[in-house]
Simulated scan of single mutants.
Amino acid sequence: MTALGVGFATGFSLILAIGAQNAFVLRQGLMRSHVFSLCLFCAVSDALLIAAGVAGFGAITTLWPGFPGIMALAGSGFLLVYGAMRFRAAWAGGDALTLQGRAPSLKVTIATAAAFTWLNPHVYLDTLGLIGAISTQFLGSERMAFGAGAVIASFVFFFSLGYGARWLAPMLRTDRAWRVLDAGIGVVMWGLAAKLIGGLLV
């Protein structure tokens, strides 16, 4: 497999797991709300982090040992709050109406995506750490190709998730379906928060 292919496979496998950011993109895609801007923001953010990792900044966790802990604390707090919001929405219901236009503004959407992206310590470990470490097995143009492959994977994934979500829209026309979705997202958020907090206590 070429360096580009290895980079694509590595990037795609790391981002494939359903996490807080992916769940948010999925929900916005279902609402068809600011999908392009959101997917572009997430993909570009990933690209910047991947470029930093490939460029050799994976040593940041070595130079600043407390960095992962700070990000984990901030990220877990945000996940707990957002998870609570989704549980509240599931309890209250009425989110089926978002398909007819009641949706967050672009500013709120991007701000939320920024929090999910930049307050997630796993993003730094995956991009600055793991992808940066794997890239060291390549030299020169091959290393750049590896990084390009990982960046392409992010763009393919986010835009596929955001725009592919609309195929699920017919199944989510009812209030009950949205309650189930919001409750499921809340469970994911709190589960991730618990994992981050657990890591801090080890």
Results as ranks from 00 to 15, higher is better:
residue 1 M to A: 03
residue 1 M to S: 06
residue 10 T to C: 07
residue 10 T to E: 08
residue 11 G to L: 04
residue 14 L to C: 09
residue 15 I to S: 00
residue 17 A to G: 06
residue 20 A to K: 07
residue 22 N to K: 11
residue 23 A to K: 12
residue 29 G to N: 03
residue 30 L to N: 04
residue 31 M to N: 03
residue 32 R to F: 04
residue 33 S to F: 15
residue 34 H to C: 03
residue 36 F to M: 02
residue 40 L to N: 03
residue 41 F to N: 00
residue 44 V to W: 06
residue 44 V to K: 08
residue 47 A to Q: 07
residue 49 L to W: 05
residue 50 I to W: 05
residue 50 I to Q: 04
residue 51 A to D: 07
residue 51 A to I: 10
residue 56 G to I: 14
residue 59 A to K: 11
residue 61 T to V: 09
residue 63 L to S: 11
residue 66 G to A: 13
residue 66 G to Y: 15
residue 67 F to C: 02
residue 68 P to E: 05
residue 69 G to I: 11
residue 74 A to F: 12
residue 76 S to H: 05
residue 77 G to Q: 08
residue 80 L to Y: 14
residue 82 Y to M: 07
residue 85 M to R: 05
residue 88 R to K: 15
residue 90 A to R: 09
residue 92 A to S: 11
residue 94 G to L: 10
residue 109 T to Y: 01
residue 113 A to K: 04
residue 114 A to F: 14
residue 115 A to N: 06
residue 119 L to I: 14
residue 119 L to N: 04
residue 122 H to F: 06
residue 127 T to D: 10
residue 130 L to M: 08
residue 131 I to N: 00
residue 132 G to S: 07
residue 136 T to W: 15
residue 139 L to Y: 15
residue 141 S to E: 12
residue 142 E to H: 13
residue 143 R to G: 06
residue 145 A to F: 08
residue 146 F to N: 00
residue 147 G to H: 07
residue 147 G to M: 10
residue 152 I to V: 14
residue 155 F to T: 01
residue 156 V to F: 13
residue 156 V to N: 02
residue 156 V to I: 14
residue 158 F to C: 01
residue 158 F to A: 00
residue 159 F to P: 00
residue 159 F to C: 08
residue 161 L to S: 01
residue 162 G to A: 08
residue 164 G to D: 10
residue 164 G to N: 10
residue 165 A to R: 03
residue 176 R to A: 09
residue 177 A to E: 07
residue 178 W to P: 06
residue 186 G to N: 06
residue 189 M to G: 00
residue 190 W to V: 14
residue 194 A to T: 07
residue 198 G to D: 09
residue 202 V to S: 10
